[in-house]
Structure formats: C-alpha cells, structure tokens
Design a protein around this nucleic acid. Sequence first.
DNA 1: TTGTAGGCGTTATCAT
DNA 2: ATGATAACGCCTACAA
Lengths: 333, 333
Amino acid sequence: MSTIATLTDVAKAANVSKMTVSRVINHPEQVTDELKALVFKAMKELDYQPNFAAKALAANTTRIIKLIILEKVDTVEPYYATLLMGVAQALNEHQYALQVVTQKNADIGDCDGYIITGARRDDFDWLNQLNRPTILFGENRHNYDYVDSDNKYGTFLATSAAINDGYDQIIFFGIELKESFEYSRERGYMDTMQKDGRNPQIVRFGNHSSEAQNYVENHWHEFKPNTCFVCSSDRLAIGVERGIQHMHGNIPDEFGIIGFDGVFLDQIADPKLTTVKQPVMTMGSKVAALLLQKINLALPMSEDHDPDRNNRVEVMFSPELIRRQTTRNYHRS
Amino acid sequence: MSTIATLTDVAKAANVSKMTVSRVINHPEQVTDELKALVFKAMKELDYQPNFAAKALAANTTRIIKLIILEKVDTVEPYYATLLMGVAQALNEHQYALQVVTQKNADIGDCDGYIITGARRDDFDWLNQLNRPTILFGENRHNYDYVDSDNKYGTFLATSAAINDGYDQIIFFGIELKESFEYSRERGYMDTMQKDGRNPQIVRFGNHSSEAQNYVENHWHEFKPNTCFVCSSDRLAIGVERGIQHMHGNIPDEFGIIGFDGVFLDQIADPKLTTVKQPVMTMGSKVAALLLQKINLALPMSEDHDPDRNNRVEVMFSPELIRRQTTRNYHRS
DNA sequence: TTGTAGGCGTTATCAT
DNA sequence: ATGATAACGCCTACAA
C-alpha cells in the first residue's frame, strides 16, 4: 500500500477507534499511557502524517498565514528574504501554509492570521481593518504586538564601540523617517553619547547609499580625522564608505564606520562593514511562533486564558556587534 | 451574516443546486448561459471565495507546492528572493499554498508538486526519488523540465556589446562549476568571439567577488587598456570592478565590465554595472504556472492529453542587456 | 477513559 | 443540463 496513511489506518493498526488516535494527537492527557504507546507505535510504522486540509476543514480554519510586505515593490531586499526563511520554517513545522502577499492582493482569500512587515504610519488605518490575529515585524506605537530587534541597544553597542575605539568625533547618520525604529536607534546613540559627556550630532537621509555618500563628499572639510560614522543602516554605511574612499580618507584609522542590519550588504561592502547585526532569521521564526500562539488562544476551546493576555506582546531581540574592517579593533584602556 | 459564503449559500441565492455552482467554477461549459449568469451574480453579491481546504480534501490533493532551495544556507540571495516572489504570486492566484523548504525538511508532509532551484549534478539522485510533478528552475542535462533564462543568448548580448563598444581584448570570467548554465554562458561568449574572428579567453573562479578581484590585481600587467571583462555573474563583475579600481584603472574608458543576473548587486556596485538582466520574477511565475499545468495534466480526469506531453518542457526567457556605467555607451560604426 | 455519530465545504458519480 | 448522494480526513459533541 503506497497510499498515505490516515487516522483510520492508524486506528486499525493500533486496534482502537479513530477518536483515540485523534486524541493522542490533540489531547494526549485524556488517553491512557498504554493506548498512547500503541498508537504512537502504529503512527510510526505507518509513517502517519496528518492531513493538513482535513484538519483545516474540520476546524473551520484555513491554516494559512499571510505575510504582507508593505513598502515599494523593489523591496526584494535580502533583509526580507532572510526574514521570510525564518517565518516559513516555523510555519512549516506546525503545518501552516505561508502566503506571501502584497497589500493589493492581500484581501483575496481567507486566512487565520497576518504577519505584517514594513508598516509605516500611514498603513495603520488599513491594518485596523484586518479582522484576524496580527503580529507586526517591527516596533510600532500603535499598540500592535510586534517582534523587532532592540534598536536602542543596537546603537548603544555601536556608539560604545566607537567610543572605546578612541574616535573623537562620532556622528550619527540616520534615516529620514518618522518611524519608531528610527527614534529608538537615535535614542540609543544620543543616550550613550551624553552618558560619555559628548555632543550628539545627527544627520538624516533617505535610505540610499548615494545620499550618504554625497553628504560625506560635500561636507568633507567638516570631518576631522579620527571620526566615526554610526549609521542606521548598512546602506547608509556603504554610502559613507564610498564617500570616504572618494575623498581618499583612510578607513579605519582616520575614519570609522559602523552599519546596522548585518544582512548581506555588510559583506558585499569593501572593506567589509563593522555592523550591528540583527538575528533576522530567528526573529522571523519568532513572529510566526507568536502568531500561531495568538491564533490558538483566540480559539474558543482554550479556557485557560493567559491572565495577562490583554497585555501587548513586545519581543525584542538583542542585536550583536560584528567587528570587521571599518573600525579599528583597538580598545582604549 | 458576516460569515463566509459557501457553495451552498451561493446555490440558495441563485436558486440552483450546489453542483451547478461547483460546475460553473470547474466545468463552465456544462452549464447553460442563463444559469451561469445567475450563479455569477450570486457569487458576486455574496463575495464568494472557494474554500481552499475543502477543495483539497475533496480532490484528494494537498494544494501545497514545495519550493526546495538546494545550495548552502547562506544563499539567501536577492536572486532567490525575487524568484520566490514570482512563484508566490502565481501560486496565490490559483489557490495553491507555497512551502519554502530546504532539502533536510523536504520530506515531511505531502505536497502536489515540487519546484527545485539550485540543483547541481550531485543532487539528481535525490531528485529522482521525488514522486510528484517537478519542475526545475535552471537548465539541466538530466531531462527535467525547466525554466531558465537563455544563458547563451545572454553572453551573446554581452560579448556583442563589448565588441561594438570597441574593446580590443574581451575576456570571459566564468564560474568554476561543471553546470549546464555555465557551459551555455561560455558557449555564447565563445561563439560570438569566433564569429568576429577573435580569440576567446576564459578564466574561471568560485562565485566570489574576492577571487575575481585577486585575479585582476595579480594579473594586472596582462590587461592592456581597452579590455572588457564579460562575467558570468554580477558577483564576479563586482570583484573585477574592485580590482580595476585598486589598480587605478579607468572604468569604462580603459576597462569595461559586463555582469550577469541583474538582481540587486548590479545596482549596489559603484559605478553601477552594465549587466545582462534576467527577468527573474517573471521566470518565477512561469515555473509555478508550468508546474500547476503539469499537475492538472497528471490528474486522471484530463483525457485530452496533449499529444506531445512526453516531450520535455524547456522554457527559456530572453535576458536583456542593461547599459549602465561600466561600459562606454559608444558604438563603433 | 473510550467510542459513535455527524458535519466542515467541495467534487465525482450516478441518476434524472 | 441539472440534481441527489456519498466521500475526502479530521474533530467536536455526546454517549457509554
């Protein structure tokens, strides 16, 4: 029999009813250990794989999660690709299907929950219409549950490193966006600077390497040797790197650069960027896991509501400073 | 009723049986135009969306397609991300779910078909075990159906451009891989060179920018000004660009560079790469479409077998030469 | 603790 | 050309 084993097949093999098998899977505590053992054995022998579609149908559920990538189309950035892999992995483990979708076609077809990434201020009106459990990827001030990296801590790491490495002037190149993640990154920089009795200095750009590059070249006279540029993205950092190279500045001795993200771009740069690396893949798995958890809690059957279920879920992952070639690896003592 | 409309709801609204509605969807030719009109109207009014899971269950089908990305884990390259978007889009339109999977967990859970990308010679033993319709992304000599860009034509475009732009020496930087796509690219270069009475010259590397860069620097004396480097990937092209820059060669007047792929990297480079761009997203949609077609043909009901269904399906997309900053845009007359 | 009956939404089959 | 029925695999509700 090369056909795929069903609940019924397992039940027969184990000499029990379908329901017992179903219970072994969904409510194992209700079944005696003896029977459980028998059922497990049968499942293993038949290589039983639950039927995704039947499960969905019976539970009045789709077992589909939509990942909505807001933002311009050209955002096929490595960052999102990595995130996607993380999400896909976690979802697969729990027999959920992933649909990657853009805002336009997000409405067609039902689903059990949404993962949203790249949400900006303007998007929240639209987001509020979604009537399914939702988790955002990226911190926000609209009370949505989210997963993000600890942006403030990230720039704390970067700024501290710049200080430790002995750079005199430390400038922050930020992204010209009134978004929460950017505020946090700037805050991390500013606090760290002030704690060390230094004057913060922030410049902002659209997130394009050319803008940062032009700025560096046009304001070259303002940067004395021994300056470090702490950037809010690897894109900006690459621009800075190019600007310095075009002006024949020395990296990392005269000028340091620290990026943010640590996905692909940092390695493409030459010299390779010292950067604040986010564990993007892990974060992807986490959003997915949280969403599934939320979906299951929303199900009527779960009586054992988490008491603080009303609270917002905010998960922050600690980024990590990766030292490469755009900072001196020299610590002041 | 904010509940989701089902076939039955539509049937009631249109005063017909469920089956008629089902037929309107799946076998419209069997239904009279009058009834069809009624049913369509009802479907629109109720905003009917077919239930994915029920369809799957009834058809003894999973409606799941697995996209298997063979190759090292760090291959979260923009290239694959773009491909993925294309696949996802086409699949969503047909109510199929996409599972992104690596070789390891490819075996868990059933599916209706596979899309394979990054298959190398060694992988084919494993591929042969897959007992579901399969389409490869990437040309191959193992008789698998595939979609790819026309690699040979791509390097023909690149080489012709280099010739037209008046470069004296034209060298091919290939990828050290005994794979079909690489053979085709080299063939396109060689044929075009020979047709113009020139001597082809090929060097090969692992697909890393640093290898190409080192080579350029170490063999710098061999490259007279007015040389163009035709590369088998944008990665290699970036390495060449860096090598030339480190040796203070002038781009594009003394040295031209043409990359291959046209996904992300070409735009990140500075100066931006002239490159052979593949329509990756479109190609992704096409693989998906082909696979769905193949799956439906495999279904017993389709009696009207395409007569040459036994033939292998090979779809080649024409790449396009994008002229940017690493070639002179100067045509010899 | 375990088993039985019925239904989730769709489609194929057979009947009309 | 259209409709009634059964079945896909699983789960909830109820019965034993």
